[in-house]
């Protein structure tokens, strides 16, 4: 059984059960089999983090894993995520039609999720900035921008004051939490 991954894994716990290499033990007694993760889980924690990073953040494939199946899992995660985001941004997804999955996957590959609401929002803004936002998506984005304040970094929050928002020619106005599309997007 290879242990090379432990040499690579920054922060891996060399005292994890079964680890026979790294010679320098950390402070504290070695964990007993069946001990709580607080004692035994650091090696596992680091390896789980490596794997998730490889799957969603463009990290390297951890040693010992089969590249083909992990790549298939990476694509499956993107498809699942595309479906989740489409549920939060149905008009954006519908506007892109058959191109939704590919457009989302291209944007999301190597970019960890911030939740479906923010993912869709970030994608819609990027498409807008590149002139690729479909009309339905522009109307959805304008409506969202009018009702909700989103700084691109933290959880979106409802606007308390009336607001007007524009995207791709669409104009949405929000008053007392109710939003109306004043003008449709360019088609």
């Amino acid at each position: 059984m290879t242990r090379t991954r432990r040499d690579r894994a920054a922060g891996a716990d060399p005292a994890a059960p079964g680890a026979t290499r790294p010679a320098a033990p950390p402070a504290g007694p070695p964990p007993a089999p069946g001990a709580a993760p607080a004692d035994s889980g650091e090696g596992l924690a680091a390896r789980q983090a490596e794997l998730v990073a490889a799957l969603v953040a463009g990290g390297p494939l951890p040693p010992g894993f089969a590249p083909g199946p992990v790549a298939a899992a990476r694509r499956a995660l993107l498809r699942k995520r595309a479906g989740d985001v489409a549920r939060h941004w149905p008009l954006l997804a519908a506007g892109l039609g058959a191109g939704w999955s590919a457009t989302f996957a291209e944007w999301a590959a190597g970019r960890p999720t911030n939740g479906s609401l923010r993912d869709g929002w970030d994608l819609a803004r990027e498409l807008r900035d590149h002139g690729r936002l479909p009309a339905l998506g522009a109307e959805e984005l304008a409506s969202r921008e009018a009702t909700t304040r989103y700084d691109g970094r933290t959880t979106p929050r409802p606007r308390r004051l009336p607001a007007v928002a524009r995207a791709g020619g669409a104009v949405a106005v929000q008053l007392a939490g109710r939003v109306r599309l004043l003008r449709p997007a360019h088609r």
Binding site: P37, G41, V52
Partner: peptide, 25 residues
């Protein structure tokens, strides 16, 4: 999830004693 990242779906564990201990806890 691990290392502050959400995987977005269910990921498998190693079938190891260490993983058994983590799940059991």
């Amino acid at each position: 999830r691990a290392g502050g990242l959400e995987a977005g779906h269910l990921l498998p564990l190693p079938r190891s004693r260490e993983a058994v201990a983590a799940v059991v806890a």
